[in-house]
Design a protein around this nucleic acid. Structure first.
Lengths: 118, 118
DNA sequence: CAGCATCCCAGGTGATACTG
DNA sequence: CAGTATCACCTGGGATGCTG
């Protein structure tokens, strides 16, 4: 290819890395600013959009919706829409999402640990 | 505060979340695109800058240097400069960085797992 | 070798307003 | 309630070139 440039942003490159390298792949999926936090909220069970929003006062609706979609696309969360009035949408972890929970919990403990050491 | 705006980008807000919430804190530190991959390279021992670069063909020098600095600041890696010619700099995980390794390994396994399921 | 400075673009994120 | 659309901004990240 000899250059890979022309506004390609090397994105294909990153994708390639993510394909090869499990950590990069994982980072790509759960690496966002919010993915981990959202998942940790969902560990204890399904939640509605509004509940998530309340749990995460710092996130904007937009970001919540966006990241929820991304997680849904990546099969980390399942989104269930109830055809009711008022509308109700519930989010819950998929099996593969649940497999993340021990990792998330370890990360929490690590985080607290690390914070102390600072 | 009543608004928090004026070009503040809400960054302080994110910081606040990171302070309170261990997952957010962890995400803040290891959440970057490269942190995890870099750490996973260092699990097996210290490496020089050039070695890291060779191990991570997709990363630019700039990003490698930047993230290495960030990791150093966060006490995840230790940076050792040898006053020699030619210059030599070695990077290795700190104790707290090593505590990350089981998590990283789990994440790797999760990543491979997840990739298959797609 | 290791890494910084500069330039610059693209994508991420926020604010606000609107809809089913 | 649970979003989506749009605009504008800002930072992340790439490319390139230079230094100790």
């Amino acid at each position: 290819m000899s250059k890979i440039k022309e506004t390609s942003t090397n994105f294909a490159n990153k994708q390639a890395l993510a394909e090869e390298c499990p950590e990069a792949y994982a980072a790509h999926i759960i690496g966002g600013q919010w993915a981990l936090v959202i998942c940790s909220c969902l560990i204890n069970g399904k939640l509605r959009f509004g509940e998530l929003k309340r749990l995460l006062p710092n996130i904007t609706e937009r970001m919540l919706a966006l990241h929820l979609r991304k997680l849904e696309t990546n099969k980390i969360v399942r989104r269930t829409v109830y055809a009711e009035v008022p509308p109700r949408v519930e989010y819950e972890l998929t099996p593969i999402g649940y497999e993340l929970s021990p990792i998330i919990k370890q990360l929490e403990r690590w985080g607290e640990n690390h914070k102390k050491l600072k």
